[in-house]
Design a binder for these strands. Structure first.
Length: 354
DNA sequence: AAACCGGGGCT
DNA sequence: AGCCCAGGTTT
């Protein structure tokens, strides 16, 4: 089987037209690859244009405030990606002449660039003959070549890498790697792959052995943790209280409202007995305007059950003044917030009770 | 090696 | 209700 020739033939007919396709600007390719980490192409396209419009060069990204980068990233998830991009841009200015380095190994040292992205940038931008192995490639190789090794193990990774390097088109690694991505996304899909029209169906191990559904071998995922949040939308004069998340937890560096986390669903109702409530309001009274129903917000590894409590306070503790930012209701939109907060604010505008 | 980190679309 | 997406980093 001439793998690269069959793939090239498929690609000549089925190639996707994407904004980051057939470009060589290393910065643009870098941004696209980071955006697309664990992110669907359809979701990433808008962010790609918006990000490069806001930060057209590595220099502009290096000079940007992290909060501004996170605001542009809002809604895309995995926010460490945005912080790493900005951090890396700053690093490149002083250590690499403001440019991405041009070898696979040096790309790997940049925060936010791992084995896949280093291979993608090295091949797409610099034409280096290195594999760029993502979920698509694992799936394609596992099925066609009958590889049952786990993609999570070190030996499995090496096995896949060796096969891809062996079959890849060293004369056009950029086209070869991009063709694999399109082939995985369009033809050899996770479920219901289009084997009938596949150019590899006569040689594909999984097709011939009826193991399409069991390849690649997937690892069992652990139980999803449930958490219970009460967000206090505290109105004080013309402001509301917000703070930046700094703990080693979800949504690091994003902004939020005063948060009471409780142990279970029924404890959501007793937010007025919490320590945080007393620390903010002391013994002074507050007027509760609205208590939202419990909103379920699913992350890949946690299920959040969130209740929003909108209230008006005439007095706050000194601790509250020290701890929170007082944000004019007109400026709340300038802060990067989790999607679940953005959605709630869109549905329940802040001006209503002011 | 396994856990952690978001959000959305598809089935 | 799962699965998985142009994965990387931390534990």
């Amino acid at each position: 089987m001439d793998f690269k020739k069959l793939l090239r033939g498929w690609y000549s007919v089925n190639k996707r037209d994407l904004p980051w396709r057939d470009i060589t600007n290393p910065y643009h390719i870098w941004v696209s690859e980071v955006i697309l980490q664990q992110t669907r192409v359809a979701q990433g396209i808008g962010y790609y244009y918006r990000f490069l419009n806001e930060f057209p060069t590595i220099t502009s990204l290096a000079l940007a405030k992290e909060d501004k980068v996170l605001k542009v990233w809002q809604g895309l998830g995995y926010y460490t990606r945005a912080r790493n991009l900005q951090k890396a841009a700053v690093w490149l200015m002083t250590n690499s002449n403001g440019e991405l380095p041009k070898t696979y190994d040096s790309l790997l040292e940049i925060p936010g660039i791992g084995p896949y992205s280093a291979g993608a940038i090295a091949s797409f931008a610099f034409g280096l003959a290195v594999p760029a192995i993502d979920g698509n490639v694992y799936r394609i190789v596992a099925r066609i070549f009958g590889v049952f090794a786990s993609t999570a193990s070190a030996t499995g990774k090496k096995e896949f890498n060796d096969i891809v390097y062996e079959v890849m088109d060293k004369d056009n690694p950029a086209q070869f790697n991009q063709a694999l991505l399109d082939f995985g996304a369009l033809q050899c899909t996770p479920r219901k792959p289009n084997c009938v029209t596949c150019p590899f169906n006569s040689v594909c191990y999984a097709y011939r052995n009826n193991t399409i559904e069991s390849l690649p071998v997937k690892v069992m995922k652990g139980a999803v943790r449930s958490r219970f949040f009460v967000y206090l939308i505290v109105k004080y004069k013309d402001s509301i209280l917000m703070s930046k998340r700094t703990a080693k937890d979800i949504w690091h560096s994003l902004y939020e409202f005063p948060l009471i986390e409780v142990d279970d669903q029924k404890s959501l109702e007793s937010f007025q007995n919490s320590t945080l409530w007393r620390k903010i309001f002391g013994k002074s009274g507050v007027y509760i305007n609205k208590v939202s129903p419990v909103i379920t917000h699913k992350l890949s590894h946690q299920t959040l059950n969130i209740m929003f409590v909108t209230l008006t306070a005439s007095r706050l503790s000194q601790w509250a003044f020290r701890t929170y930012s007082f944000v004019s209701t007109n400026n709340v939109g300038d802060f990067s917030v989790p999607v679940v907060i953005d959605n709630y604010l869109a549905a329940e505008p802040l001006g209503e009770y002011l």
